[in-house]
Amino acid sequence: MSLKTETVPVQPSRVQNWFKFDARAYTMIGALIAIWVLFSLLHERFLSPTNLSNLFLQMSVTAILAIGMVLVIVAGHIDLSVGSLVGLVGGVAAMLNVWYDWPAIPVVIAAVALGAIVGFIQGWIIAYKAVPAFIVTLGGMLIFRGVLFGTTGSVTVAPLSPGLKAIGQHYTSDIIGWIFGIAGLLLAAVLLLRKRSSRIRYGFDVEPLAVSLLRMVVTGALILGFVAVMNSYKGIPVPFVMVVVLALIFTFITRNTTFGRQVYAIGGNPEAAKLSGINIKRRVLLVFVLCNTLAAIAALVLTARLNAATMSAGQNYELDAIAACVIGGTSLIGGSGTIMGAIIGALVMGSLDNGMSLMNMESFWQYIVKGGILVLAVYVDIYTRNRKKA
Rank of each mutant, 00 (worst) to 15 (best):
Y383E: 05
K129F: 12
L164I: 14
I249Y: 05
V136D: 06
A323S: 15
L3I: 10
I266V: 14
F21W: 11
N97F: 03
G76E: 00
A183N: 12
I200Y: 06
T156Y: 08
I126T: 00
Q169D: 12
G371M: 11
I176F: 11
V375D: 06
R215S: 11
V98A: 03
G220K: 07
E207V: 07
G350D: 11
L300I: 09
V380N: 02
T156V: 15
L85K: 03
H43K: 12
T7V: 13
G268H: 11
S197Q: 12
N354H: 07
I78K: 00
A66I: 07
L213M: 13
L41Q: 15
V92S: 01
Q16E: 15
Q16Y: 02
V98L: 04
L294W: 00
M230Q: 15
I67Q: 02
F134C: 09
G220P: 05
I135H: 09
A75T: 04
I327Q: 09
I373L: 15
D79L: 03
M349T: 10
M361R: 08
D381V: 05
L55R: 07
A25H: 14
Q122F: 14
A34I: 12
M28I: 15
G123E: 01
R45K: 14
L209T: 15
A309Q: 00
Y264D: 01
R282A: 13
A272I: 11
R282T: 09
I278M: 07
I135Y: 06
G115N: 13
G163Y: 04
G329P: 03
L88N: 00
F252H: 12
F46G: 03
M349K: 08
G337E: 00
V217Q: 02
N307T: 12
E271W: 02
A75K: 01
G168Q: 04
I143M: 14
V61D: 08
G146C: 03
A23Q: 10
A93N: 09
T219A: 14
Y367F: 12
F180Q: 00
E362C: 02
M311K: 06
L222R: 03
I126K: 00
Q58M: 06
T310D: 12
M359H: 06
P162E: 14
I175R: 13
G115F: 02
A111Y: 00
A265V: 08
G341N: 02
I125S: 04
E6V: 14
L85Y: 02
S197P: 01
V326Q: 02
L285A: 01
R14E: 10
I200V: 11
V284N: 04
Y26W: 15
V211R: 01
V211L: 07
F288S: 05
A273F: 03
I266Q: 03
A130F: 06
H77K: 13
V61A: 07
N354R: 04
S197G: 01
